[in-house]
Write a protein that binds this DNA or RNA. Structure first.
Length: 203
DNA sequence: AGCCAGGGTCTAA
DNA sequence: TTAGACCATGGC
């Protein structure tokens, strides 16, 4: 039976040290909303143009239509601007000593923040161990021959398998996305996929 | 649990 | 240029 550690080890072996989202917590919050339904390169391009303005005290002071104009290239400007405003407000008076599950609930209460985005924020901005489960991760697991009955089983697969280490959660998530989107977008022959050793059904 | 809103970008013709 | 797929989803 495949373990989360096997997966992590194989990806690390294949691609080397993964990158971390950002060392600036607010940058993580800001970009985690922008990237919803949007390609990562698009987010990076957009943020490059407005990089001096991505700070909570600046964003919170903008008018809605100003913020919408700034993020328009990432799509869904109206809903994303509102979510970013609400999230920024939350962040400014967030209590960083809050328990992880409590913080997660608060994030989920913000309109526009779902489970995936909440976990991205918990892991990359607050270094809390709450594994990020996205569509790519689910598809990858199923291609590797693992099936789960529920979301909580997938979560247990990673969290029990990896221990409570937020850094590993973040690195593994990045590796999975990098693998699925950048490296193996088009299905290669089984032999050329670095995960083929894990399972013959792989990719 | 599945469908749909929400805007832009990318691609092929 | 234009239709249609696609995008590191969320909400209902």
């Amino acid at each position: 039976m495949l373990s989360a550690n096997d997966l992590y080890t194989a990806l690390l072996e294949a691609y080397g040290e993964p990158r971390w989202w950002s060392d600036d917590p607010y940058m993580v919050l800001f970009q985690s909303v922008l990237v919803q339904n949007t390609s990562w390169t698009n987010v990076e391009r957009t943020c490059e143009k407005i990089k001096g303005m991505i700070a909570p005290e600046i964003i919170s002071g903008l008018a809605d239509d100003e913020l919408e104009a700034m993020i328009r290239p990432c799509g869904l400007p109206r809903s994303k601007a509102r979510t970013i405003k609400d999230l920024t407000r939350w962040y400014i008076d967030a209590d960083s000593s809050l328990a992880t599950c409590r913080m997660r609930k608060e994030l989920l209460a913000i309109k526009g923040i779902g489970e995936e985005t909440a976990d991205v924020i918990l892991v990359y901005a607050f270094h809390r161990p709450s594994f990020i489960i996205d569509r790519y991760t689910r598809v990858l697991l199923s291609r590797l021959g693992c099936s789960f009955r529920s979301e909580s089983e997938v979560r247990a697969f990673f969290e029990d398998g990896l221990g409570n280490d937020a850094a590993i959660y973040g690195y593994l998530h990045w590796l999975i996305l990098d693998h699925c989107i950048t490296r193996c977008r088009k299905k290669p022959e089984c032999g050329s996929c670095p995960l083929s050793a894990l399972c013959r059904k792989c990719i």
